[in-house]
Design a protein around this nucleic acid. Sequence first.
DNA 1: AATGAATGAGTGTTCATTCAT
DNA 2: GATGAATGAACACTCATTCAT
Lengths: 190, 190, 190, 190
Amino acid sequence: MRIRDDQKREAICRAAIDLINSNGFEDTSISKIAKRAYVSPATIYVYFANKEDLLNQIYLKVRLEMSSAMMEGLDEFQPVEEAFRTVWFNFYNYAVENQTDFAFGEQFANSPLVNRIDRDEGERYYGPLIELFERGKREGIFKDVPLAVFSAFAFFPVIGLIRNRHSGNLVFGKEMLERVYQIAWDAVTD
Amino acid sequence: MRIRDDQKREAICRAAIDLINSNGFEDTSISKIAKRAYVSPATIYVYFANKEDLLNQIYLKVRLEMSSAMMEGLDEFQPVEEAFRTVWFNFYNYAVENQTDFAFGEQFANSPLVNRIDRDEGERYYGPLIELFERGKREGIFKDVPLAVFSAFAFFPVIGLIRNRHSGNLVFGKEMLERVYQIAWDAVTD
Amino acid sequence: MRIRDDQKREAICRAAIDLINSNGFEDTSISKIAKRAYVSPATIYVYFANKEDLLNQIYLKVRLEMSSAMMEGLDEFQPVEEAFRTVWFNFYNYAVENQTDFAFGEQFANSPLVNRIDRDEGERYYGPLIELFERGKREGIFKDVPLAVFSAFAFFPVIGLIRNRHSGNLVFGKEMLERVYQIAWDAVTD
Amino acid sequence: MRIRDDQKREAICRAAIDLINSNGFEDTSISKIAKRAYVSPATIYVYFANKEDLLNQIYLKVRLEMSSAMMEGLDEFQPVEEAFRTVWFNFYNYAVENQTDFAFGEQFANSPLVNRIDRDEGERYYGPLIELFERGKREGIFKDVPLAVFSAFAFFPVIGLIRNRHSGNLVFGKEMLERVYQIAWDAVTD
DNA sequence: AATGAATGAGTGTTCATTCAT
DNA sequence: GATGAATGAACACTCATTCAT
């Protein structure tokens, strides 16, 4: 009996993400994914129950990778500002360095597919970030607003900027990036 | 006879938007659109060259409606702050009151389909907003940043909040909305 | 707009019956049926909702044809014996002359598919036969047994004989046929 | 170790018969059989050459079991009537008590699959029954007809009645059964 | 002997689009 | 202009079978 091959599983996910990014969900079929991953269509069903399961698992995996990338270097004893800075740049860097994964996540999150999955599963990993947010509020540093508002101003602008990167009309250097960070910080602090 | 045509065309677009919002691009076929619009599949090809053309035209139409909704009540003699307030609340209200159209727009904008259309076509209608932005900068009110950064902090947070509305964990009243607006205003002004 | 073609529908049914008779339900796919009927697989779905619907409709059609063949020449003023003789030979002749349809019916009737259809639909056409049976009982000619027992001895032996015809070890002439009929008549009469 | 093997083989046959009876040949795949028998698909190929071989072996096994059930208690010194009675009730009881096996046999016998197997293999075990038939004819008790006609009236009516049992419109007690037996006896005797 | 992984070929069905009226 | 019929190509998925252990 052969044993399952994690590289194969990985190749299938990679192929799916790439195809979805270049052609969209609509034009990404199981057989195209199979072809790109150099496996038989039937093999995909050894690793995933069906297409929806494949997409969900990829989404959750991407979310997990992104969230753990965001939390990297974060600890509860850092001053709030330092911690926020860490998270913010982690997020920005992840989005820039993992363009395809990030784009896949955004496309999935804006499609009705996202409503069919267990949302808690996807949000589970943000604990440390939420704690940071609460601590910042307790220390009177962050504005006293709901978490959704906080992250809308802290992180969504980055998504907007990344979206514009593709159009090519947004190229900015270190200085501008620092400027943007500063605006975000000002927006969420009192 | 002219009226009849436009009604039919409208019905087709409406059906397409609704189906895409509830089932995604993937599960929205020409024949399902036809069925929901009470026309024959062949009839759709009287109004649109093919499926891609249908989707593009819908997207451009939605963008146009949204942009003109945003500009409503805007004129070049208003003080900058009043004008910004107008645009911001116009945007928020449009997103809330036209949920399906807005969701369609977001879904399309995050899919690779958006890269295949003439982007200028979509952006053409934002002239007055750009002028407002330039005027605000000249008057030393808005921060001296690129347009992309400006709108990333002015409008993207709203998109983030709307996205969370669906999850149901974001319900806020007039007061909170005013609060959010104030944060946006603070973020984009010096 | 083209209109539906009853010949096409007929060709599809014919192709399905023939294939099922030579290869069984298992080896009879939609695409094989399509090929044999000189239509596209998709065309079959213009005339039938799905494969199950196709098979059910064929079965009901065959049953209907068989039952009306059986009733041919039957009227309520004939003496019971003459009427029974008519029906019995009608049945035998139908089975012999419409081998494929008959075989299809037997195969379907012995498969679990038959349990999924509306049985009443299939039995509806036997009214005159049932009336003959009741009349025969009233006149003290037929044995006083349930209908199921009556037809088990009147008609099932014929099915058994037909089944053996295929094996080739049953070839009999007019005389023997008359003999078999006589046994059936004796079995159901007092 | 020998015992284990036979249990596994038995489990595979059992699983196949059950699945075919509830879902038909068409919906009964090797992997479903494997799952139901708690073995690997590959294991089935240890015991059977391929799917056709599996089905044939099951059919022959069922025929063998049925025929030996029919012959039980039969010996060549019994009077013909007693012997016939024994065989007839054996047949009826087998059909009623082994519903699934019997239904499988009927389904297989009415499908083209039956034509692909060695028919002699299946008929080999009916020797004693044939002898009884010949003896009855010699003694002037049974009608002088071919074997096929004899069994068409002796046994096929039972098959017809069993077929109707499933529809639920045939429930009969000891008395009626005796009645049916009597009709069969009358039909085959002079 | 026994197994889960692996697969090319096939399944039933739907697709976007065109045809004929 | 409007339509239902028609279709080749594609879809997601399962098949019987073999492979590697």
